[in-house]
Simulated scan of single mutants.
Amino acid sequence: MEDTTQVPDQKPEFTSDFEEFETRDAGYEKRQRLARVVESVRFGLTVLALLAGLTILGTSADTLSVYNKTRSGSDFIISLWPAEFDIRPTTALIVCSAIIFLTSTIALVGMKVPTIRNNPFTHSTISFAAPTICLIAALIGTSFFYGVNASNTVNSLKSWSCQWSDISMNVQPHWGQLCKESKTALYLTVMCIPVEVLVLATTAWGTMSVNRPLVITERKGSPAMS
């Protein structure tokens, strides 16, 4: 008997050698997401610099205030502070930290205020000028501190207070506290240097990324039957 079973016709298979590509909208969305991440990083670093500047300002101002109160007091028979004494490092930290705090505040305002953000020239100027000013201020404050501390004949608030930090006193100056405050101010100032470098780097990267033209991959090939 003849086999009448019908074999179903096989549909022709189509293969395509189309290359995948990103549309302009997809590329733009990807770039926008990356720009938001970079902006968030820059915002966080700027907030860190602002808080560091505020802390440096507070600790340095307190140590200088204690020095001014106790350098000529009549409660002690002998002077608590040496004749050869240099307060320029502490004064420099106060001035530089105030600059860092105020400039970082301006930078944060520039990031969040729509009027400034929508003005490319103003926004770009603030974005680059603010971390540059903060970086210069941090370098100046650090150089003053280490320059005076390198001297073997002239003392600073940090070197003198840390020298007597093991001595406990019931009244001001509390050497241990002054030493800790001086170290905190110095270390935070040093920390501001790489922080501001990173802020500048993220700003430059973000600017180049936004200005770089989108590259769209064109379709190649055509579907083929197999």
Rank of each mutant, 00 (worst) to 15 (best):
G44R: 04
T23K: 02
D9N: 06
A98M: 13
T70G: 01
G110T: 05
V66D: 04
S65T: 09
L93F: 08
R71F: 07
S97P: 01
F101N: 09
C96T: 15
E20R: 09
I94E: 09
G44D: 06
S127E: 05
R24H: 08
A98C: 05
S124V: 04
C134R: 10
S65N: 04
Y28W: 06
V95A: 06
R42C: 07
I140V: 13
A35C: 03
D9T: 06
S74H: 04
T105L: 15
T91L: 13
A138Y: 07
A107N: 15
G53T: 00
D25P: 06
P12Q: 00
L135A: 10
R117K: 15
V95M: 01
I106D: 00
F18S: 03
T55G: 07
V113T: 12
L102F: 13
G73F: 05
R36T: 08
S40R: 11
D62C: 06
D86T: 09
S79R: 06
S60I: 04
R31S: 01
E22K: 13
R117E: 02
E13Y: 08
A49D: 07
P131W: 03
D86R: 03
V37P: 10
A92G: 09
E22W: 08
I100A: 13
S124Y: 13
S65E: 03
S143W: 02
A137Q: 04
R42N: 15
F43W: 03
T142M: 08
A107V: 11
A52E: 02
T63V: 15
D9R: 05
F121Q: 13
S74Q: 09
K112D: 02
V95R: 05
S104C: 07
N119K: 03
S74K: 11
T122M: 10
K112E: 04
V109M: 15
L34I: 12
C96Q: 11
K11W: 07
A26F: 13
F128N: 01
P120C: 03
Y28I: 12
A49H: 09
V41T: 10
L139F: 12
R117H: 04
K69L: 14
A98G: 15
R42H: 02
I136L: 13
I116W: 06
F14N: 01
F18L: 11
I116Y: 05
L50D: 02
P131N: 02
A52D: 04
R33I: 04
W81E: 00
I140E: 00
M111F: 14
F76S: 15
S143V: 11
K69N: 14
E29V: 05
L135Q: 04
I87A: 13
Q32F: 06
I77E: 14
I94Q: 12
E13N: 03
L54E: 06
I78T: 14
A129V: 14
K30C: 04
P114K: 08
F14E: 07
T15I: 14
Q10S: 12
I136C: 05
V66M: 09
D17A: 02
A137W: 00
E19K: 14
L93K: 05
I100V: 15
T125M: 10
V37E: 08
M111Y: 11
L57N: 07
V109P: 07
A138F: 09
S16F: 11
V95L: 02
E13V: 12
V113M: 13
I126S: 09
D75R: 15
V41D: 08
A107Y: 10
P89F: 05
L50Q: 10
G53V: 07
L57G: 11
E22D: 11
A129E: 00
